[in-house]
Amino acid sequence: MNGRLTITVDGRRIEARAGQTILEACQDAGVYVPRLCAHPKLSVYGSCRVCTCLVGGRATAACVQPVQPGMVIENDSDRVLEIRRTIIEMLFVEGNHFCMVCEKSGDCELQALAYRFGITHPRFPYMFPERPIDAGHPELLLDHDRCVLCGRCVRASAELDGKSALGFAGRGLRRRIEADGPRGLAGTDATGDDTIAEVCPVGALLRKGTAYRTPYGRRRYDHEPIGGDIDAPCGEAQEDR
């Protein structure tokens, strides 16, 4: 075997290395698997489930599932796309995502995923949860309204910055990112040079003083769908619903 193995993705045979996740193997083969919590510089976490694919007919998170010889994976089937679409819609209604007043708009991975999936509105009722803003840090802003609990910042603080500025607190609907200590982000050793804002896929963790630098039309996802650098988009049509 020599560490090489073959998997099948949407009927196409793909070479993979033993130990790779499905997401990594697909990416190496030019197949985009949508993701939010996964980040190339960070350990795998598997919280957002946007990368859900069907392995042997069972729903699995591609970012945490290692490849196995002969795996048969559905990544682009109607059923998989519907699962992902539903998850993205749920992420929108669970938080307070006011794109029109968000500094991250146009550069936001959650918004870009919704664009890629042609989502014009969620099918679920908005929950409008009450969530605080932590604006006390001189260089960083933590807006819980926009947080999708992907945990990238938690991992980045520990794995890239060598700190433990952020962690998770609470369970279920009350789960949230929490700064280490009672004074919010300002009470931690996090600085504007840390990677925690850079890895945030949404506008929850922002570096202050950097907003609206890029004009409309030149932002990351204004013209090209997310994942477009990895493969062709799955569809640009607006759903007639």
Partner: peptide
């Protein structure tokens, strides 16, 4: 006709 707008026209901002 079916409503099929190009990618650039569906935006939230």
């Amino acid at each position: 006709r079916p409503l099929e707008l190009p990618y650039e026209l569906i935006k939230y901002d």
